[in-house]
């Protein structure tokens, strides 16, 4: 089954009032940011999409696939699932080695030709200290856990709808992680507090008090600013890697940074 559109049918806010926005249609290939204060219902919104809610969650939203109510199987059977979700969770509860976990998950998703070593090597491109196949899941650090979750979502849960919750939080390489999770022709929703990520999305949903308040389409100007912020961000990330590697930072050249930015090159 090919997905060309999902519809989010309005639910209720935390006080029980009807969500102000009308039904929202998201088409194949679109990337949406989801922004708003903590507690405003961002994670609930993507949880609704993950479960293909039918008025049975706290928000009472309904999610349609290609304009239709999804079947019970699509909602529950992981082999038929069309949604991959990277949640905010920073630890695993399963007491088993990394390789066994990945094999078990591949089995659940009905994926036969998964190379566990490849998944782990992808995870290791995102994190500092490498993860080993024989490591127990519960001993992994927050960053290692997150990196493994990203690789697992990107390869084993590979799906036409991708939900990403605060990828910037775990100290992993967020740009690389985002690139791994994205792909041509997917529907992607990214919950974020990070202006670099929020402005780089085509549209962003503004959340408040548990409901969708507004949709903002990013302007040409915002896209330029996003590129400029991206350069600053990359610079900070190289500083981060230097600090992590035990180097001393002698000097930071802010002027050069601003002058060399893509933003000015655009002008």
């Amino acid at each position: 089954m090919e997905i060309h559109q999902i519809t989010i049918q309005a639910g209720i806010d935390k006080l029980g009032n009807t969500e102000r926005l009308p039904d929202l249609q998201i088409n194949k290939g679109e990337i949406y940011g989801i922004v708003g204060p903590t507690g405003s219902g961002k994670s609930q919104l993507i949880a609704d999409i993950e479960q293909l809610a039918q008025g049975d969650t706290a928000s009472k939203r309904k999610i349609l696939i290609n304009g239709e109510i999804p079947s019970h199987e699509l909602r529950s059977d992981p082999r038929k699932k069309m949604v991959a979700q990277l949640s905010q969770n920073m630890n695993f509860f399963a007491d088993m080695p990394v390789a066994d976990f990945l094999k078990l998950h591949a089995k659940c998703r009905g994926k036969k030709n998964i190379d566990v070593k490849h998944v782990i090597s992808i995870a290791n491109t995102l994190t500092g200290e490498p993860i080993n196949a024989s490591d127990n899941l519960t001993i992994l650090s927050g960053g290692q856990t997150r990196a493994l979750m990203v690789a697992d979502v990107a390869i084993i849960s590979e799906s036409p709808i991708v939900l990403i919750d605060e990828i910037e939080n775990a100290g992993i390489k967020k740009h690389e992680a985002l690139q791994l999770l994205s792909g041509e022709g997917k529907i992607i929703l990214v919950v974020t507090h990070d202006p670099v990520l929020a402005l780089s999305a085509q549209k962003r949903i503004i959340m408040k008090n548990g409901c969708m308040r507004d949709i903002i389409e990013s302007t040409y100007r915002e896209k330029q600013i996003s590129l400029q912020l991206n350069d600053i961000d990359q610079y900070i990330l190289t500083l981060r890697e230097d600090v992590r590697a035990g180097k001393k930072i002698e000097e930071v050249n802010f002027d050069a940074l601003l002058h060399e930015s893509s933003f000015l090159k655009c002008l």
Partner: peptide, 10 residues
Amino acid sequence: SQAEREIFRE
């Protein structure tokens, strides 16, 4: 995580 939910269900 979603992966652990799916494994638990299985």
